[in-house]
Amino acid sequence: MNKIIFTFSCLLMMIFSLLSLSVGAVSISIPDLWYSLLQKDTSFSFIVWEYRLPRVVISILSGFGLAVSGVILQSLVRNPLASPDVIGLTKGAGFFAALVIFLFPSSPSYVLPAAALTGAFLVFILLLLLSKRLTLSPDAFALVGIAIGAVFQSGIQYLLVKYPADINMTLLWLSGSLWGRGWSEVFSLLPWILILLPVAWWQYPKLNVFQLGDEYSQTLGLDIIRQRFWLLLLSVSLAGVSVASVGSIGFIGLIAPHIARKLVGGRHQLLIPLAAIIGANLMLIGDSIGRIIIVPREVPVGIMTAIIGAPYFVYLLRREHKRKG
């Protein structure tokens, strides 16, 4: 069964990637696409090689990053509703990004992602400080995260009202957009994901134990606080690098792990890869639809994923809720 699920979702990812390469303001037929991919010198070369392909790669990489970050957080907090968005990571990143857009509008283009990453790690430090170096219960930890997120959110809104001239640029970044992302973003994201993803998967035994509860972890001889620290750092890094390159897309980190858990259960050795693939799929399909829905403009991928994911998410949770009575 699991094999089928994995094959199917990988297949889906391939189909969505091809779809994402072929649709857009300029639609490219599959034969033309093949030709452009192989020959590299057709009238579609630029669109395929320089525009859509990096977008596809970034979709996949950031989908991986956000989804796995969500899986880790949900296990840490022992709550399926946790996500990088909810505990404030994306809001911290967003606040710093907005600061750059508003206060240093002419700064070179690498400053924005750097600021976003700084924001995410600042939230991490705040989380550490305010949760007494993670000695609080997972519940308290989640609440502290929500509170930090709410504070940063007000900060963002203050900036938006204060500087009305640049609102659009900021909102586009905040909602998460793949517009204009090219190979340079791919190469700044790729090494991180390549390193962090295997590291995350390697943690699966700990994550399995963690979601059972502290008592179990202790009896199994885990140094909880220390493990929490490393796992949180891992989660923050994954979300941080993804957010830095695509903007604060929150929903993927919540819903991808959820769908994956529904399919393969709570064993992290399966959950992590499947959630990653589902995250990538959501990003791909969200981006493809966002590109063709109101040509020549684009709907930011973050909003598209929210629209697509929301109904399914509500359905999932309702069912869960009913089952629990």
Partner: peptide, 11 residues
Amino acid sequence: IGSRYEPNIEM
């Protein structure tokens, strides 16, 4: 070619 903030690069 769409929005001034995010012009459509494909187009």
